[in-house]
């Protein structure tokens, strides 16, 4: 299949890009790496009247440390972030999760921000943003706002982005998980959509913060305090598995997803605690 007819606009600056959005609104889509959007265009799941290609905008190409945040611009690819020399040191969790995003070939073009904008409930990057409590920077003609991960992703493929806004960057808190970070997922083939993905980082006072993706309509996070007994922890995970209300689809049943949550969460908590020692 081929995309439906559309106009192609390639601005040179972020300012021109938001001006384009102000003009076209919901009829336009931002094109960055295109690893989700181009497939949806080819399948005609979306038929925008205009594409605004931000992949060549220089000011969106940087990864930088800003205070205690790592800011990743909207044109930075997943492969570039993975190759960022400071990734392991300042974002050990992302260093573990990122190799699971798509394949070598799609990470070469797919962007970090694009994956978060797409907001697939089983994707690793939205899960990372939720787990690390990062934020999304949205820009429109009327200004810039920062939304927390939990405010940004509102449901399956749904976000709080307004039609006249584009993501210019995402910001991950630096140095979270330096005392322990772990990621696991179950998928049919490495690089395919996760059936269930689980990430965790060591938090304060021996607690572990856990995020689960692929079960509910967006990543869900819980904290497991150090003082919790094994049976309390098991109860809490059991409650979580039911609360997430997993769905049946061609990849797995809701029951299988619940079972994966029951099994993966304790394993990953153990992995984080083992790194912390």
């Amino acid at each position: 299949m081929k995309p439906a007819p559309l106009s192609y606009i390639r601005p040179d600056t972020a300012e021109e890009a938001v001006a384009g959005l102000a003009e076209h609104g919901a009829d336009a889509r931002i094109l960055a790496g295109g690893q989700s959007l181009m497939a949806m265009l080819n399948l005609r799941l979306v038929e925008p009247k205009a594409l605004i290609d931000i992949s060549q905008i220089d000011e969106l190409r940087s990864i930088r440390i800003d205070g205690n945040m790592i800011e990743v611009g909207a044109a930075v690819t997943q492969a570039e972030f993975l190759a960022w020399p400071q990734l392991k040191e300042h974002a050990p969790f992302i260093a573990k999760a990122l190799p699971w995003v798509g394949h070598f070939q799609t990470r070469n073009r797919g962007t970090v921000c694009g994956s978060i904008a797409h907001a697939d409930p089983s994707s690793e990057l939205p899960l990372s943003l939720a787990l690390l409590e990062g934020e999304v920077v949205l820009r429109s003609k009327s200004g810039t706002r920062h939304l927390k991960a939990s405010e940004f992703q509102t449901g399956m493929l749904q976000t709080a982005r307004r039609d006249d806004e584009m993501i210019t960057a995402v910001r991950f808190p630096a140095d979270v998980g330096t005392k322990g970070a772990a990621f696991r997922e179950v998928a049919r083939r490495h690089g395919d959509f996760a059936i269930v993905s689980v990430g965790a980082v060591a938090a304060d006072q021996g607690a572990v913060r856990v995020a689960v993706g692929g079960v509910a309509d967006r990543p869900a996070c819980i904290g497991i305090e150090a003082s919790l007994t094994v049976s309390d922890m098991t109860d809490r995970i059991e409650r979580l598995a039911w609360e997430l209300g997993g769905y049946d689809d061609i990849h797995a049943s809701a029951r299988y997803r619940r079972d994966l949550v029951r099994r993966l969460v304790p394993i990953i908590i153990g992995e984080v605690r083992a790194c912390a020692k």
Binding site: Y8, Q35, M38, N42, D53, A79, F104, T106, R109
Partner: peptide, 16 residues
């Protein structure tokens, strides 16, 4: 390979 980097050509427009 696009500027040396391997990627899907079905997920890219000719104008790009």
């Amino acid at each position: 390979r696009i500027d040396g980097v391997a990627a899907r050509s079905c997920l890219m427009l000719a104008v790009q």
